[in-house]
Design a protein around this nucleic acid. Structure first.
Lengths: 231, 231
DNA sequence: GAAAAGCAAGAGCACTGCTCTCGTTTCTGG
DNA sequence: CCAGAAACGAGAGCAGTGCTCTTGCTTTTC
């Protein structure tokens, strides 16, 4: 992987792999995962369907590759949004990131469904995907760490955190240190709300009740920002 | 639909329709939507695949029927949980309802995926489904109306609701009246959080970070209850 | 009792993921 | 430089899918 392809064949292989992935992405954007047809990809590329199997040993492997690509793309969108806001404007950073993820999801409906919708048939996402998948939540946690480092306190909550809940996110605390338990729960709740809000909107569950999706999303994200104590 | 089946044939038709639905449900629980095979259902019932089309004109119609069944089932579970708690124990009612939906989702993974995961291929859920689909959110809104009627106030929020956001859920306000704008946004946010939390957990997005899913879910729901000002 | 409607079954179409084989091309080691 | 090995593209084929159409049979209805 590290060395560049020297031979013409290896170069051609990289190129074709990329072309298949690209065509697969186009297919995905058009018909959604589950309907993604390996044969159709091969057809559009003018090659035999069996030839595709030289590059991706199965349909699931293709989907996994697309999964990684989409995680990276949405993660990059969120990171770019975060980077576009001054570091101290914490609330604005949250609003920018959440808005960016929603915008990406709306522009890439099926891709969002692939990432955060029902998991495909029986296959468990392999280890390769967890890295890219964590880009978005890690950025959110980074914001929390920044807020915490700035000494900004949260409004106290009525209910106490159980010991089990506290120790539950120890793995996260090791990777992104410096976040208090209360704020950690707040951040994870915010993440759930964000994904839930986008999912409800995109998958049509708000169709009967909410008229202005933009305003509604903004209102919810503002509320979350209040809850997180973001100034 | 209202009159009972008089003829033997009509009775047989009702029975067979039910059997197909039941077998489809079994299939669904085993392999998930998208993999639900009409031929397999027919095989298990010992009938020709073409015969099933006398009862369900297409695979999507079968899925729609299952969709309604599952919405009703989950809605009934949430309602039962709500009814099991004294009306004035508002916080407990919220925790019971959210816990019940999560429990149902965990026990009916693919069914939950069918309801709240990626929408199936190209088909838009027909009008028949929206009624059953609204049972859960309506129950949550009912709780909010009860709280509001009891004169319980919410902790004031920092950010103001935009005019667009306020008027956005006018359709809901007509069906479930007596809920203030602030609490309405809070309730819809709570709904998003609930669905997001269950989705993240069930679809494996918490696998790398959270150890104790029960405790984590409880902590988030407690937090939401605080936010909603539930005593 | 005859006509009409509902029904089950089978064949068939077009499609899918995937495997295997068969020539061909390209790379590599002596 | 050239033979063996590895990679490759194409095609046929298998088992499966949703769905349609035709063919007989049964039940209902007039």
């Amino acid at each position: 992987m590290a060395d560049q392809p020297s031979t013409a064949r290896a170069l051609n292989r990289k190129e074709l792999t990329r072309a298949i992935l690209e065509q697969g992405r186009a297919q995905l954007a058009a018909v959604g995962p589950g309907e993604l047809s390996l044969r159709a990809v091969a057809r559009d590329l003018g090659m035999a369907s069996s030839a595709v199997y030289r590059y991706f040993p199965s349909r699931d492997h293709l989907i996994t590759a697309l999964l990684i690509e989409c995680y990276d793309e949405s993660g990059a969108a969120v990171e770019a949004a975060d980077d576009g806001v001054p570091k101290q404007r914490y609330r604005k950073r949250w609003l920018a990131m959440s808005g960016a993820l929603r915008a990406w999801a709306k522009q890439n409906f099926f891709e969002y469904a692939l990432l955060y919708g029902s998991p495909v048939p029986g296959y468990a996402a392999p280890q390769d995907t967890i890295g890219p998948a964590q880009r978005v939540p890690f950025r959110l946690l980074g914001l929390m760490a920044d807020v915490e480092a700035a000494g900004i306190t949260m409004a106290p909550h009525q209910s106490r955190l159980s010991r089990a809940a506290r120790s539950s996110f120890a793995p996260i605390g090791e990777i992104v240190p410096g976040i208090g338990d209360e704020r950690m729960v707040g951040a994870l709740t915010a993440w759930a709300t964000l994904l839930g809000a986008i999912t409800l909107e995109l998958f049509g569950h708000l169709e009967q009740g909410v008229l202005d999706h933009d305003a509604h999303f903004s209102a919810m994200m503002d509320r979350i920002a209040d809850d997180l104590g973001l100034p």
